[in-house]
Amino acid sequence: MGVKGFVEGGIASIVAGCSTHPLDLLKVRMQLQGETHAPNPNPAVQNLRPALAFHNTSVAAPGSSIRVPPPLPPAPARVGLISVGVRIVQQEGVAALFSGVSATILRQTLYSTTRMGLYDILKQKWTDPNTRNFPLTSKITAGLIAGGIGAAVGNPADVAMVRMQADGRLPVDQRRNYKSVVDAITRMARQEGVTSLWRGSSLTVNRAMLVTASQLASYDQIKEMILEKDLMHDGLGTHVTASFAAGFVAAVASNPVDVIKTRVMNMKVQPGEAPPYTGALDCALKTVRAEGPMALYKGFIPTISRQGPFTVVLFVTLEQVRKVLKDF
């Protein structure tokens, strides 16, 4: 019975992941917008008032002997979901929308299959056999455990997927040009060490715990409420309603961690040079300082645009797969 849960969850996750991959790619590209823009390249000058900030490149104000620093370069314009999509198609071709889809398949096979299967096992163990009651606190706890373990298993594929999705935004001479997820993982292990495959793993685990707990627990809870109040019967309408609501909850809960995860995983670490970020907290602080607190919700529109359809496809497919495999 336990293995069946892994199979059902794995099939549903792969179908959902592949069908919403372009939206996930747009989310990653939008989360990386503004990352390379430095508000001031000289931190020593940044902390001084203009009248006291003397620097080689400063210029004298007209009619005054006081030297002030030159104006900062304007921040790069940030564009929306549709504009990002159009730009990718124009510059990289339609196929670019599926960059890293092989990594998505592997990620869903490792991460989602594990989390869905473990959640199903815990759900069976913690459901009261007499009342068939599975309390919300138990749902959340099961989601946290299943999501954390699944993320640890699937992190190498997650790193590869983020890099493959983000590659097209780099200058041609700086692109990694991974041929497939296998090539990506092999080259990362060879060039950056095996530990690079688990770069950002703490973020991946935290995000997965939030997503799984909010997504699976919300779906089960909302579905139960709909059926208990007899608002709809147990069919496609109930599954779509519950899954879309669960997707919204998951997007709100996970987006800040997702932004930091994307940036940490995508950073380039040159031999002999300090990494752009020393860790998750450093990345979060630098992002907020440079781009403001709402930078943690960059890519929220594509996140909810992807999380909603993904969750709908995931649970609708899962319910159908369960019907097909009910006699096995």
Rank of each mutant, 00 (worst) to 15 (best):
Q191T: 02
L281E: 10
A242T: 04
E273V: 09
E228V: 10
F300C: 06
I301F: 13
Q221G: 01
V313K: 07
K223N: 09
T212Q: 14
Q215A: 07
T241N: 00
G279E: 09
R187N: 02
L285G: 07
L210D: 00
T212F: 08
G200E: 10
V194F: 15
T287A: 12
G299K: 05
F310N: 14
A280I: 04
Y297P: 02
P309D: 09
Y297H: 01
Q307G: 04
G247I: 08
A213L: 10
K223F: 03
P256D: 07
A189E: 05
V252R: 00
T238V: 11
P302D: 03
G279C: 06
M232T: 13
D258P: 04
Y219K: 07
T204D: 11
A295M: 08
E192D: 04
L296H: 07
A208W: 02
D282W: 12
K261N: 15
I301A: 11
I222W: 01
L227D: 04
L231Y: 15
G299R: 05
L231P: 00
I222C: 07
E228W: 07
T241V: 14
G308W: 12
A208H: 10
F300N: 00
K286G: 01
G292M: 11
D234S: 08
V205Y: 03
T195I: 09
P275K: 13
K298E: 05
V182A: 15
E228G: 00
P256E: 05
E273H: 13
L227M: 07
K229Q: 14
Q270K: 12
Y297C: 02
I185A: 06
H233C: 08
V249I: 15
P293M: 09
M188A: 03
A189Q: 06
S243Y: 09
G292Q: 11
D220C: 00
L210I: 06
A284C: 15
S305C: 14
M265I: 01
I185K: 04
L197T: 05
S218G: 09
A242Q: 05
G237R: 13
V182F: 15
D258C: 11
N206H: 05
D282T: 15
L296C: 00
E192I: 01
E224T: 13
L285K: 15
F248A: 15
G272V: 00
T186V: 07
P276N: 10
Q307R: 10
P302G: 02
I304D: 03
Y297V: 02
I222Q: 04
P271C: 04
L216M: 14
T238N: 08
A295V: 10
M294P: 00
E192F: 05
K229S: 06
I260Y: 04
K261Y: 12
P293N: 09
K229W: 08
T262C: 08
V211S: 03
A284Q: 05
R199F: 02
G237A: 13
A280E: 01
A246C: 11
S243F: 10
I185G: 03
K268N: 06
R190Q: 11
A189Y: 06
V264Y: 04
P275C: 13
D220T: 11
L231Q: 13
G279V: 11
M267P: 01
S214I: 10
A290N: 14
N255C: 09
V181Q: 05
P275G: 13
